[in-house]
Design a protein around this nucleic acid. Sequence first.
DNA 1: CTTTCCACTTAGCAACGCCGAA
DNA 2: TTCGGCGTTGCTAAGTGGAAAG
Length: 833
Amino acid sequence: MTSDKHYTSSNEEEEDVLLSQSKRRKLKGNRTSNGKQVVKDSSDSDSESYDSETVLSQVSENHNDGRIKNEDQDGDGTDYRGNDEEGKEKRKDSEDEDDDEPLKGKAHSNSKKKAKAKAETNGTKSMEKSRPKANGKASTTQSNSKQSAPTKSSSSRKKVAKVKEEEEEQEKEKENSIKSEDAEADIDAEAEENYKWWEKEKDDDTVKWSTLKHNGVIFPPAYEPLPSHIKMYYNGKAVELPPQAEEVAGFFAALLQSDHAKNPVFQKNFFNDFIEVLNENGGTKNGVNIESFDKCDFTKMFEFFEIQKEQRKQLSSQEKKQLRMERDKFEEPFKFCELDGRKEQVGNFKIEPPGLFRGRGAHPKTGKLKRRVYPEDVVLNLDKDATIPPLPEGQNWGEIRHDNTVQWLAMWRENISNSFKYVRFAANSSLNGQSDFKKFEKSRQLKYHIDAIRKDYNKNLKNKVMLERQKAVAIYLIDVFALRAGGEKADDEADTVGCCSLRYEHVTLKPPNKVIFDFLGKDSIRFYQEVEVVPQAFKNLTIFKRPPKQPGHQLFDRLDPSVLNKHLQHYMQGLTAKVFRTYNASKTMQDQLDLIKNEGSVAEKILKYNAANRTVAILCNHQRSVAKTHAQTVQKANEKIEELEWQKVRLKRAILQIDEDERKKRPKFFEEIEDFRKEVEAAVHERVIEREIDKCHKKFARENDKRRFEKQELLEEPVLKEWLEKVEELKQQYARELKTSVTEVKSSSNSIEKLEKQIEKLDQRIETSSIQLRDKEENSQVSLGTSKINYIDPRLSVVFCKKYGVPIERIFTKSLREKFKWAIESADENWRF
DNA sequence: CTTTCCACTTAGCAACGCCGAA
DNA sequence: TTCGGCGTTGCTAAGTGGAAAG
């Protein structure tokens, strides 16, 4: 076919896309205000097709436009992989008419939405249904523990896995019965705690375990009704609620002072579910008809909870310890499980308690009731010979499964978005360690392919096939700016995006090549960056935003993560969009650590390590909300520094008082005295005095408390007065100093050398305080933890510690040391990412 | 194919509890 | 010894991605 024809047909398809997109956007409602218009617009859209445009711009394009930030300087021009790829694309391009077709999914996504929405409306009902059903299942499985594959309902995929498992099981059982019994004893003894999986060879990772035993999960305590004098009020009247409804009201009451309680969506969703529960349980018991959220008053309940909290805090440390011990003892059996005969920790062995769903950002479902989970809702996963954890009389597990291809111990379905929750191994478990190890090894492999990939996408920025250009730009963004893949989201989730789901309004283009990203990413964390991109990327983005596209439209209308990932697999097995984040994070860390010189104190090295950590966190846009007390903390720190400076000035004055000639000798040194403003000095005085006064009162009170306790006679008011008078004297002294600028220092320290020593010390303290403050400021919005836990290959930190003589404890907390035990024990000084 | 399901990884925040300064 | 500040942990929401189902 000729290219002309191709373009024509693709032009038609272009309109198609827009039409269907607009439909979709219309469905999305509030996410864009102009869905309707687009339908009209697209019909009279006579703009040239993207592809013809593409050709034009390609012609006028010079081949060697700018480099990207991270690009490696590889001189060699030959790139087999790249050429290969290109060859393929070309072939495809010329013989495949559909090449430029937009994603079908984008056109049809509304049907999906409807289906989902439907599923959700009966979400709660389906839960209810599922319970008896599951119940029935459970009894069958529990009774015939041996043979039958546990569920008819489980998918055929599961069956496949099961079969595999079963075969292996049978073989293993034979083996085990011979091997394990005698082996187990000593394996248990020596190897259970220090099983070094990373020294073993493991290949088949579809099978995660051969035996798995555990004690089930902990259910949240049953609801305890409030004392009868604690009520919610409606229109000023106390309301008698059935306990089920009271519980829900209590959930809201507990949040009364949080932002959630002020969020109208939260209020609405809560109120709807509250009313539903209320009606299900026969309505209020004293005839109050609750109709409006605004007339509900939960303050009495809130206050009660506060008092309870307070009382718990007031318990003596003995009592607290006692309670903790009891709790630990109760939880002990659930904390551990037995995996292939070894003891391993379980992560979240507690079933999530009921409550109000606290969605992040503008989540349409925030505030909905997250219902209580019962044993009937829970599926247990353990081996066939494991004892099934007992339940109280009359209760049953939802299902018992023996699926050794997964690494969860229990699972239930949650009612907010109908997804699964899992009880899994703890972060320090061998299985999680292995996954972690594999993750980092995979991203480490990327270094062998990254050059080719970068070369390719830079070249493909000019590819005449729109799909290829979009892929190229997307991978470019993912690689350079560490964007996430960005899967499609439904209407009943918060409107957040990643790379593939970026929309028109999220990217602002400022010629010649400046791009401003502004969108909400995962967890509704804002991603705001003004950056420069290579000119060709800029051109492409311009094309992707060209009319008839409008706000609300997808930038990458032919992409989704699976398209992208399929493409990436060509370069490297297992390569997906998220691997770039891991790779670039660890690579950045390696580079940053390389810059650190092996000098200075341990504390200084840690500071530098943290700075390196911070670059990574910034790359990945890991933010945290500034602590409520942050401004205050900063102010305090600044005041402290001011005070230190004030001290210094006083000492310098004192030097001049001893020998005025000093000033001529080193005017710079004494400049500070004039620079220190009177207002500041006065403010410092005031603060110091006030603090002194405060101290006197406190000391007085404390002393008397003690004396009362020891039955001694109390200090009288005059004593306090006496102390305060001393402070008053000091105040007078400062006042004089302020006027005369003459320091009245103690005679003990009135030699110039002594004063200078003190000044030096103060200088040092000011220096460290300033550094700490700056560090704190820079960290106030950046969260270092996420990158340390998930993105930075722990071996980098281990090597850093070994090479620089920094104790690993200063870098990894106890739990991180356990999580990264494999790294700590396997990485030597020369290891590199 | 596309959609849905399932499993697993990544994420920020609130509660907890430890530790150093007063 | 207490108190507050701060790092750590626990919690659970919100992503990614592979694979089965439709």
